[in-house]
Design a protein around this nucleic acid. Structure first.
Lengths: 353, 353
DNA sequence: AAACCCTACTTAAACGTTAAAGTAGCCTAA
DNA sequence: TTAGGCTACTTTAACGTTTAAGTAGGGTTT
């Protein structure tokens, strides 16, 4: 029922190809014909059938984005950044949320591959890179976002998680915390590497890490805030309880905050708290939450740019883009007693490979 | 490069159509052939080319969802709900964010129509329904979500905004507020109808509404929280300042909260506050925020279900689904002084921490 | 034994577009 | 004058799939 090239061609007594050429600004057309065609196209409000175009060109101008949880503001912002870049280049983003479920993620990826997307950006909920095989098999260019896999060759855009962990932990230490706990996720690189940064900072200040001070939970079935809440409840049973908490993301920190307050303890006086990700509402929380900013929109933009390069067949170097994390100090981590010296570095994208 | 039906057919010495029939569980195939085909399909990990299929069937199994702002948790949750329903039925959701920009929204819709999506779900940032014409012209079934247009025939899924406004405002009144202000958006039905509910509740209690007590701002260029912050700054210059604020959504309320606290006033003692939408983090805010729950995931699910019905050509009745708003009482609106008896109309208020 | 009906296929055509190759008609050069 | 080269088209084929129509070969009915 929609208008086709053929309709326009018949109306004007030219061939379909002529109309198609006008549409694609092919040189091979006289001024006069071009104008007549354009006029008719506008009159009928012709919209090319992208499915047909995709079939013959092999290009869908669709780019897939798979995230673990779209409701987490972080990924929504990444999507926004990516979408912004792609839109300008005539590409659409097709977003899938895996709900942190690897099996569902596989299904979604399979769907996207079936649609012959031109490239795929994945923030995976898998703990091993085996699933990447299906993307390789389909020969569709892809890159990893936020979460990577050790020993995996694929392109990657994310932040320097180790440095983020170090930054946050050092900040807590500088604010006088001694018994710092880490609450993270399971089997994802962000959690693992932030933990590594945590360990490094603790070691650098010769602070011991006791058994049980490190919590790693997958939040497969719980929302992250509930995960944080439960983890903190457990930590509070330890005597003495921790005096500082570093959470690997802000939703977890939100739950932690809730648990601390419920226990009748004060933030930051009794327990200092810092998250990671710097969600928009961090400053509006019960206690304004210190965090490590990741510039998520920029992350999305960079990922999109690399996806486009991959499609264009450009050799992408470096293959890894690590954004520089930035410490954002708010009330939740600033202890009156301590002399704080919040280190804020300029937010340059640091490129490594 | 991907495997095609032809590859499988050639391998087995059957025709392409035979393979296609197996794929679609057509009856016309012997047990033996079916098994051979299925085996080969699995071996080669055949993925049908959906673009080709779409071209011939006219069905893309794609459903478009246009939202004003994906970073707003409300719409992310709606998307999640819709996606959940559609996935089960073999449809994919393709999400566009218009960033509250009508012009951009038109572009995105046009893109989606060009992709021959099977149906479109729109939460529009337009203030008039004129843009719907392009969807009508393309003859693609669609429905409105969250925001509707008066006098518009289209299907709609949303909440009863008038009731939401009434519920929230009555609650503030019952908590002893007298000078209640409304902070809303411009030209969108949610804002307009919640305002209407506000007026109705005020009138029912014979409370006057003074000039300037009603703020309607579009947040075209600001994020909603900044809009709320600015609006509240202005309201605070009035003497006497309002003693209750109803915000048409939670991000706005978040900004309002910030402004009130900065001014050195207490919530709820000096100013009671209630939002709408009940975002996940509402209970974790500086002052736990009362809100009106909209059950956004359900909204997404219902919208998806209607979209599927429209595609199936079913007569959709009723054409309008209004979800019942539910008052969620938290600290921000409960004044110790007042004898609060938040009995709200058909459904009871839920008191949550 | 002719007519018919099944079953299990195959063949032909179509979907709307683009890519590649072909061509008519005119102009220019040697 | 003839070849060659432009310009502005057209024709043909293809992309991977589905739909509709056709058919070979066997069995059953009458």
């Amino acid at each position: 029922m929609p208008v086709r090239l053929k309709d326009i061609a018949d109306d004007l007594g030219v061939s379909v190809v002529t109309v198609s050429k006008v549409l694609r600004n092919h040189g091979d057309i006289s001024r006069e014909t071009r104008d007549r065609v354009l006029k008719r196209i506008k009159e009928l409000n012709y919209q090319p059938n992208l499915a047909a175009r995709a079939l013959v060109t092999g290009r869908t101008h669709l780019i897939g984005l798979v995230v673990p949880d779209l409701v987490h503001q972080f990924f929504a912002q990444v999507a926004k950044g990516a979408s912004h870049v792609l839109r300008k280049r005539g590409y659409s983003l097709i977003i899938s949320s895996s709900e942190e479920d690897p099996a569902l993620e596989n299904e979604e990826i399979s769907q996207l591959l079936s649609r012959r997307i031109d490239a795929l950006i994945v923030a995976s909920s898998h703990s091993t890179p085996a699933f990447l095989q299906q993307i390789e098999d389909a020969q569709i260019p892809y890159l990893l976002l936020d979460r990577k896999f050790s020993g995996c060759e694929a392109c990657f855009v994310g932040i320097d998680d180790r440095k983020a962990g170090e930054l946050a932990t050092t900040h807590l230490i500088e604010n006088g915390c001694q018994r710092i706990a880490y609450i993270g996720g399971k089997n994802v690189s962000t959690a693992i590497n932030r933990l590594e940064g945590f360990r490094k900072a603790m070691a650098a200040h010769r602070l011991p890490i006791h058994e049980g001070q490190i919590t790693c939970r997958s939040h497969f079935d719980d929302a992250a805030d509930i995960t944080g809440y439960k983890a903190m409840k457990t930590l509070l049973r330890r005597k003495p309880h921790p005096d500082g908490i570093f959470c690997y993301n802000d939703p977890v920190a939100t739950g932690v905050m809730q648990a601390i307050i419920e226990a009748g303890l004060r933030i930051p006086e009794d327990i200092a708290l810092i998250g990671c990700g710097n969600v928009r509402y961090a400053s509006a929380l019960r206690v304004p939450l210190s965090s490590v900013d990741q510039d998520c929109e920029l992350m999305g933009e960079q990922a999109a740019a690399i996806a486009l390069d991959l499609i264009a067949g450009k050799v992408v170097t470096p293959k890894t883009v690590l954004l520089e994390p930035r410490l954002i100090v708010r009330k939740s981590s600033v202890r009156p007693a301590a002399n704080s010296n919040p280190v804020s570095k300029p937010n340059r994208a640091v490129v490594s490979k």
